[in-house]
Protein backbone atom coordinates (compact mmCIF):
# COMPACT_ATOMS: atom_id res chain seq x y z
CA UNK A 1 0.00 0.00 0.00
CA UNK A 2 2.71 2.36 1.08
CA UNK A 3 4.88 1.51 -1.90
CA UNK A 4 1.94 1.93 -4.22
CA UNK A 5 1.27 5.40 -2.90
CA UNK A 6 4.91 6.30 -3.19
CA UNK A 7 5.20 5.14 -6.77
CA UNK A 8 2.04 7.06 -7.61
CA UNK A 9 3.62 10.17 -6.17
CA UNK A 10 6.87 9.71 -8.03
CA UNK A 11 4.89 8.90 -11.16
CA UNK A 12 3.26 12.31 -10.92
CA UNK A 13 6.61 13.97 -10.37
CA UNK A 14 8.13 12.34 -13.40
CA UNK A 15 5.79 13.96 -15.85
CA UNK A 16 5.41 17.61 -16.72
CA UNK A 17 4.49 19.35 -13.49
CA UNK A 18 0.97 20.72 -13.78
CA UNK A 19 -0.02 20.76 -10.12
CA UNK A 20 -3.37 22.48 -10.46
CA UNK A 21 -4.58 20.21 -13.25
CA UNK A 22 -3.10 16.98 -11.93
CA UNK A 23 -6.40 15.60 -10.67
CA UNK A 24 -8.24 16.40 -13.88
CA UNK A 25 -5.44 15.11 -16.03
CA UNK A 26 -5.41 11.78 -14.18
CA UNK A 27 -9.01 11.30 -15.17
CA UNK A 28 -8.41 12.29 -18.77
CA UNK A 29 -6.50 9.07 -19.42
CA UNK A 30 -9.37 6.85 -18.36
CA UNK A 31 -12.15 8.76 -20.13
CA UNK A 32 -12.33 6.47 -23.21
CA UNK A 33 -12.67 3.46 -20.93
CA UNK A 34 -15.31 5.09 -18.78
CA UNK A 35 -17.21 6.27 -21.85
CA UNK A 36 -17.26 2.75 -23.27
CA UNK A 37 -18.38 1.27 -19.97
CA UNK A 38 -21.05 3.92 -19.69
CA UNK A 39 -22.41 3.26 -23.18
CA UNK A 40 -22.32 -0.50 -23.26
CA UNK A 41 -22.58 -1.60 -19.65
CA UNK A 42 -24.04 1.12 -17.42
CA UNK A 43 -26.59 2.54 -19.82
CA UNK A 44 -28.12 -0.84 -20.78
CA UNK A 45 -28.21 -1.89 -17.12
CA UNK A 46 -29.69 1.44 -16.11
CA UNK A 47 -32.32 1.15 -18.83
CA UNK A 48 -33.46 -2.18 -17.41
CA UNK A 49 -33.28 -0.82 -13.88
CA UNK A 50 -35.38 2.24 -14.61
CA UNK A 51 -37.79 0.23 -16.77
CA UNK A 52 -38.37 -2.14 -13.88
CA UNK A 53 -39.96 0.66 -11.91
CA UNK A 54 -42.16 2.04 -14.69
CA UNK A 55 -45.48 1.06 -16.14
CA UNK A 56 -46.24 1.02 -19.88
CA UNK A 57 -46.86 4.77 -19.91
CA UNK A 58 -43.60 5.54 -18.08
CA UNK A 59 -44.98 6.29 -14.62
CA UNK A 60 -43.25 5.05 -11.49
CA UNK A 61 -44.66 1.80 -10.12
CA UNK A 62 -43.65 -1.15 -7.94
CA UNK A 63 -46.13 -3.39 -9.74
CA UNK A 64 -43.40 -5.12 -11.80
CA UNK A 65 -41.39 -5.97 -8.71
CA UNK A 66 -44.54 -7.32 -7.07
CA UNK A 67 -45.27 -9.37 -10.19
CA UNK A 68 -41.92 -11.13 -9.78
CA UNK A 69 -43.37 -12.89 -6.77
CA UNK A 70 -45.94 -14.84 -8.79
CA UNK A 71 -45.46 -18.64 -8.76
CA UNK A 72 -44.18 -19.10 -12.35
CA UNK A 73 -41.52 -16.44 -12.07
CA UNK A 74 -40.53 -17.36 -8.54
CA UNK A 75 -40.15 -20.96 -9.56
CA UNK A 76 -37.94 -19.91 -12.50
CA UNK A 77 -35.63 -18.05 -10.11
CA UNK A 78 -35.75 -20.87 -7.65
CA UNK A 79 -34.85 -23.55 -10.24
CA UNK A 80 -32.00 -21.34 -11.53
CA UNK A 81 -30.66 -20.76 -8.03
CA UNK A 82 -30.97 -24.41 -7.08
CA UNK A 83 -29.22 -25.65 -10.20
CA UNK A 84 -26.47 -23.07 -9.73
CA UNK A 85 -25.97 -23.94 -6.06
CA UNK A 86 -26.02 -27.65 -6.78
CA UNK A 87 -23.55 -27.56 -9.68
CA UNK A 88 -21.30 -25.06 -7.87
CA UNK A 89 -21.22 -27.33 -4.85
CA UNK A 90 -20.80 -30.62 -6.73
CA UNK A 91 -18.43 -29.11 -9.28
CA UNK A 92 -16.55 -27.45 -6.43
CA UNK A 93 -16.17 -30.59 -4.33
CA UNK A 94 -15.43 -32.98 -7.19
CA UNK A 95 -13.23 -30.42 -8.90
CA UNK A 96 -11.28 -29.96 -5.70
CA UNK A 97 -10.73 -33.70 -5.30
CA UNK A 98 -9.73 -34.03 -8.94
CA UNK A 99 -7.34 -31.09 -8.76
CA UNK A 100 -5.83 -32.45 -5.55
CA UNK A 101 -5.40 -35.87 -7.14
CA UNK A 102 -3.81 -34.34 -10.24
CA UNK A 103 -1.30 -32.38 -8.15
CA UNK A 104 -0.29 -35.39 -6.04
CA UNK A 105 3.34 -36.33 -6.45
CA UNK A 106 2.44 -39.81 -7.57
CA UNK A 107 0.44 -38.66 -10.59
CA UNK A 108 2.56 -38.89 -13.74
CA UNK A 109 3.48 -35.46 -15.12
CA UNK A 110 2.13 -36.18 -18.61
CA UNK A 111 -1.27 -37.13 -17.20
CA UNK A 112 -1.36 -34.02 -15.02
CA UNK A 113 -0.54 -31.59 -17.81
CA UNK A 114 -2.82 -33.37 -20.30
CA UNK A 115 -5.77 -33.21 -17.95
CA UNK A 116 -5.09 -29.62 -16.92
CA UNK A 117 -5.04 -28.61 -20.60
CA UNK A 118 -8.22 -30.57 -21.09
CA UNK A 119 -9.81 -28.64 -18.23
CA UNK A 120 -8.93 -25.40 -20.02
CA UNK A 121 -10.72 -26.69 -23.10
CA UNK A 122 -13.73 -28.16 -21.30
CA UNK A 123 -14.34 -25.07 -19.16
CA UNK A 124 -14.64 -23.08 -22.40
CA UNK A 125 -16.57 -25.79 -24.20
CA UNK A 126 -19.98 -24.74 -22.99
CA UNK A 127 -23.19 -23.90 -24.76
CA UNK A 128 -24.65 -25.49 -27.84
CA UNK A 129 -22.03 -28.11 -28.74
CA UNK A 130 -21.85 -29.27 -25.15
CA UNK A 131 -25.59 -29.80 -24.97
CA UNK A 132 -25.48 -31.74 -28.23
CA UNK A 133 -22.63 -33.93 -27.03
CA UNK A 134 -24.69 -34.82 -23.97
CA UNK A 135 -27.68 -35.64 -26.12
CA UNK A 136 -25.48 -38.04 -28.09
CA UNK A 137 -24.38 -39.57 -24.79
CA UNK A 138 -27.28 -39.58 -22.36
CA UNK A 139 -30.24 -38.74 -24.62
CA UNK A 140 -32.91 -41.34 -25.35
CA UNK A 141 -30.81 -42.63 -28.27
CA UNK A 142 -27.48 -41.68 -26.68
CA UNK A 143 -24.57 -44.12 -26.63
CA UNK A 144 -24.55 -44.65 -22.86
CA UNK A 145 -28.33 -44.99 -22.66
CA UNK A 146 -28.43 -47.55 -25.49
CA UNK A 147 -25.40 -49.48 -24.24
CA UNK A 148 -26.81 -49.74 -20.73
CA UNK A 149 -30.17 -50.85 -22.07
CA UNK A 150 -28.86 -53.43 -24.49
CA UNK A 151 -25.84 -54.76 -22.65
CA UNK A 152 -26.91 -54.57 -19.00
CA UNK A 153 -30.65 -54.27 -19.37
CA UNK A 154 -30.69 -51.03 -17.43
CA UNK A 155 -33.13 -48.49 -18.83
CA UNK A 156 -32.14 -45.09 -17.50
CA UNK A 157 -35.30 -43.44 -18.70
CA UNK A 158 -37.55 -46.06 -17.17
CA UNK A 159 -35.69 -45.52 -13.92
CA UNK A 160 -36.81 -41.91 -13.98
CA UNK A 161 -33.74 -40.27 -15.47
CA UNK A 162 -34.33 -37.56 -18.02
CA UNK A 163 -31.57 -35.56 -19.66
CA UNK A 164 -33.99 -32.71 -20.30
CA UNK A 165 -34.80 -32.27 -16.63
CA UNK A 166 -33.23 -30.58 -13.62
CA UNK A 167 -30.80 -33.42 -12.98
CA UNK A 168 -29.97 -33.91 -16.62
CA UNK A 169 -29.17 -30.24 -16.93
CA UNK A 170 -27.08 -30.40 -13.76
CA UNK A 171 -24.98 -33.28 -15.11
CA UNK A 172 -24.44 -31.30 -18.31
CA UNK A 173 -23.50 -28.10 -16.45
CA UNK A 174 -20.97 -30.07 -14.44
CA UNK A 175 -19.05 -30.63 -17.65
CA UNK A 176 -17.88 -27.01 -17.57
CA UNK A 177 -18.19 -26.44 -13.81
CA UNK A 178 -15.85 -29.27 -12.80
CA UNK A 179 -12.92 -28.27 -15.05
CA UNK A 180 -13.38 -24.60 -14.17
CA UNK A 181 -13.04 -25.51 -10.50
CA UNK A 182 -9.89 -27.52 -11.27
CA UNK A 183 -8.35 -24.52 -13.05
CA UNK A 184 -9.30 -21.97 -10.42
CA UNK A 185 -8.33 -24.00 -7.36
CA UNK A 186 -5.05 -25.45 -8.69
CA UNK A 187 -2.86 -22.46 -7.72
CA UNK A 188 -4.35 -22.45 -4.23
CA UNK A 189 -3.63 -26.14 -3.71
CA UNK A 190 -0.10 -25.63 -4.98
CA UNK A 191 0.22 -22.93 -2.32
CA UNK A 192 -0.32 -25.47 0.46
CA UNK A 193 3.16 -26.17 1.78
CA UNK A 194 4.29 -29.69 2.41
CA UNK A 195 5.80 -28.66 5.75
CA UNK A 196 2.38 -27.72 7.14
CA UNK A 197 1.18 -31.22 6.54
CA UNK A 198 4.34 -32.73 7.95
CA UNK A 199 4.32 -30.47 11.00
CA UNK A 200 0.71 -31.47 11.69
CA UNK A 201 1.52 -35.16 11.32
CA UNK A 202 4.56 -34.74 13.47
CA UNK A 203 2.43 -33.20 16.23
CA UNK A 204 0.15 -36.21 16.12
CA UNK A 205 -2.65 -35.08 13.80
CA UNK A 206 -4.45 -37.59 11.60
CA UNK A 207 -4.92 -36.68 7.91
CA UNK A 208 -8.52 -35.74 8.69
CA UNK A 209 -7.41 -33.45 11.53
CA UNK A 210 -4.86 -31.86 9.22
CA UNK A 211 -7.57 -31.02 6.70
CA UNK A 212 -10.03 -29.84 9.34
CA UNK A 213 -7.68 -27.57 11.29
CA UNK A 214 -5.18 -26.45 8.63
CA UNK A 215 -5.83 -27.45 5.00
CA UNK A 216 -9.46 -26.36 4.70
CA UNK A 217 -9.11 -23.10 6.72
CA UNK A 218 -6.13 -22.02 4.63
CA UNK A 219 -7.90 -22.87 1.37
CA UNK A 220 -11.24 -21.40 2.45
CA UNK A 221 -10.87 -17.96 0.82
CA UNK A 222 -9.91 -19.58 -2.50
CA UNK A 223 -12.65 -22.18 -2.20
CA UNK A 224 -15.26 -19.49 -1.61
CA UNK A 225 -13.98 -17.45 -4.54
CA UNK A 226 -14.08 -20.46 -6.83
CA UNK A 227 -17.58 -21.44 -5.72
CA UNK A 228 -18.99 -17.96 -6.35
CA UNK A 229 -17.44 -18.04 -9.81
CA UNK A 230 -19.08 -21.40 -10.44
CA UNK A 231 -22.40 -20.13 -9.15
CA UNK A 232 -22.39 -17.13 -11.48
CA UNK A 233 -21.27 -19.35 -14.33
CA UNK A 234 -24.29 -21.60 -13.96
CA UNK A 235 -26.75 -18.87 -13.01
CA UNK A 236 -26.14 -16.92 -16.22
CA UNK A 237 -25.99 -20.00 -18.46
CA UNK A 238 -28.49 -19.75 -21.30
CA UNK A 239 -27.08 -21.46 -24.39
CA UNK A 240 -26.60 -24.88 -22.79
CA UNK A 241 -30.05 -24.82 -21.24
CA UNK A 242 -31.93 -23.68 -24.33
CA UNK A 243 -30.22 -26.11 -26.69
CA UNK A 244 -30.56 -29.04 -24.30
CA UNK A 245 -34.17 -28.58 -23.28
CA UNK A 246 -35.44 -26.40 -26.09
CA UNK A 247 -36.88 -24.07 -23.49
CA UNK A 248 -38.86 -26.79 -21.70
CA UNK A 249 -37.21 -26.19 -18.34
CA UNK A 250 -38.35 -23.14 -16.44
CA UNK A 251 -35.07 -21.26 -15.88
CA UNK A 252 -34.86 -17.52 -15.38
CA UNK A 253 -32.47 -17.10 -18.31
CA UNK A 254 -34.84 -18.96 -20.61
CA UNK A 255 -37.74 -16.84 -19.42
CA UNK A 256 -35.78 -13.69 -20.22
CA UNK A 257 -34.72 -15.11 -23.58
CA UNK A 258 -38.34 -15.77 -24.50
CA UNK A 259 -39.25 -12.27 -23.40
CA UNK A 260 -36.56 -10.79 -25.69
CA UNK A 261 -37.75 -12.81 -28.69
CA UNK A 262 -41.35 -11.77 -28.28
CA UNK A 263 -43.13 -10.14 -25.40
CA UNK A 264 -44.39 -13.43 -23.87
CA UNK A 265 -45.23 -11.75 -20.58
CA UNK A 266 -47.29 -9.11 -22.38
CA UNK A 267 -45.50 -6.53 -20.28
CA UNK A 268 -42.05 -5.34 -21.38
CA UNK A 269 -41.45 -3.70 -18.02
CA UNK A 270 -41.95 -6.98 -16.19
CA UNK A 271 -39.25 -8.37 -18.48
CA UNK A 272 -36.86 -5.67 -17.26
CA UNK A 273 -37.73 -6.54 -13.69
CA UNK A 274 -36.80 -10.18 -14.43
CA UNK A 275 -33.37 -9.07 -15.56
CA UNK A 276 -32.99 -6.77 -12.56
CA UNK A 277 -33.85 -9.70 -10.31
CA UNK A 278 -30.96 -11.71 -11.79
CA UNK A 279 -28.52 -8.92 -11.09
CA UNK A 280 -29.87 -8.60 -7.55
CA UNK A 281 -29.36 -12.33 -6.95
CA UNK A 282 -25.79 -12.07 -8.22
CA UNK A 283 -25.17 -8.98 -6.10
CA UNK A 284 -26.50 -10.73 -2.99
CA UNK A 285 -24.26 -13.73 -3.70
CA UNK A 286 -21.26 -11.45 -4.17
CA UNK A 287 -21.93 -9.63 -0.91
CA UNK A 288 -22.30 -12.93 0.89
CA UNK A 289 -19.03 -14.01 -0.64
CA UNK A 290 -17.24 -10.86 0.55
CA UNK A 291 -18.57 -11.30 4.08
CA UNK A 292 -17.56 -14.95 4.22
CA UNK A 293 -14.20 -14.19 2.72
CA UNK A 294 -13.49 -11.44 5.22
CA UNK A 295 -14.31 -13.87 7.96
CA UNK A 296 -12.17 -16.68 6.56
CA UNK A 297 -9.22 -14.37 5.96
CA UNK A 298 -9.16 -12.70 9.36
CA UNK A 299 -5.80 -14.28 10.13
CA UNK A 300 -4.31 -12.48 7.14
CA UNK A 301 -5.54 -9.01 7.99
CA UNK A 302 -4.49 -8.41 11.57
Amino acid sequence: MLSERRSAASGALRLKPLPSFIGLLDWAGVIPFLLFILLFLILPSLYLFVGSFQDSSGRFTLENIRALFTPTIMSAYWVSIRISLLTALLGGVFGFFLAYALLSEETPTWLRSALLTFCGVASNFAGVPLAQAFIFTFGRMGLVTVLLREAVGLDLYEMGFNLYSFWGLSITYLYFQLPLMVLVITPAIEGLRREWREAAENLGASPLQYWWYIGIPILMPSLLGAMILLFGNAFGAYATAISLTGGLINLITILIGNQIRGDVLHNPNLGYALALGMVVVMAVMMSLYYLLRRHSERWLRQ
Binding site: R193, E195, W196, E198, A199, A200, E201, N202, L203, G204, A205, S206, Y213, I214, P217, I218, W299, L300
Partner: peptide
Protein backbone atom coordinates in the same frame (compact mmCIF):
# COMPACT_ATOMS: atom_id res chain seq x y z
CA UNK B 1 5.30 -46.45 12.83
CA UNK B 2 3.43 -43.57 11.12
CA UNK B 3 4.78 -40.11 11.97
CA UNK B 4 1.70 -39.07 13.92
CA UNK B 5 2.16 -41.92 16.41
CA UNK B 6 5.87 -41.44 17.09
CA UNK B 7 5.72 -38.55 19.53
CA UNK B 8 8.89 -37.07 18.11
CA UNK B 9 9.02 -33.27 17.89
CA UNK B 10 10.34 -31.57 14.78
CA UNK B 11 11.36 -28.02 13.93
CA UNK B 12 11.56 -27.14 10.25
CA UNK B 13 13.93 -24.81 8.43
CA UNK B 14 10.97 -22.82 7.08
CA UNK B 15 9.27 -22.70 10.53
CA UNK B 16 6.13 -24.32 9.04
CA UNK B 17 3.86 -22.48 11.47
CA UNK B 18 0.18 -22.81 10.64
CA UNK B 19 -0.64 -19.37 9.21
CA UNK B 20 -4.30 -19.53 10.17
CA UNK B 21 -3.59 -20.00 13.88
CA UNK B 22 -2.30 -17.63 16.54
Amino acid sequence: VPPNRRNIGMVFQSYALFPNMT
